[in-house]
């Protein structure tokens, strides 16, 4: 139980901390990145293209950390590149949560 409690405490800390670490200015730039540069392959409306659809429905409530992992490390054998050279883990998690929460425009 103690271990689970510790894990939950970590999760609770991780959530708000992730959001707080992204400045409003950076958030605007990340949203632009999602729309324009992720959009190159996944579509401006996130309905997919060469890459898979990234709408809230398509992601179906996936674990944001799993999505952040794919963003950071890519999917070998596909055209999804690793974004770790360009994004921090906090930023990748922000994008994952953005994809899960924000309806496509």
């Amino acid at each position: 139980m103690a271990r689970i409690a510790a894990f939950l405490a970590l999760m609770l800390m991780a959530g708000p901390a992730a959001a707080d670490d992204i400045s409003p200015d950076r958030a605007v730039r990340l949203e632009h990145l999602v729309l324009q540069d992720c959009g190159s392959c996944h579509g401006l409306t996130r309905k997919g293209g060469l890459g898979s659809p990234l709408t809230r429905e398509a992601l179906g409530g996936a674990d944001p950390h799993a999505i952040a992992g794919i963003i950071l490390d890519g999917l070998p054998g596909t055209a999804m590149p690793p974004w770790r050279p360009l994004l921090t883990e906090t930023e990748a998690l922000w994008i994952a949560n953005y994809l899960l929460e924000e309806p496509a425009k």
Partner: peptide
């Protein structure tokens, strides 16, 4: 590429 590692491709 002659065995060089391919860089991540962010735009086809």
């Amino acid at each position: 590429g002659r065995g060089r590692e391919k860089l991540p491709v962010y735009k086809m």
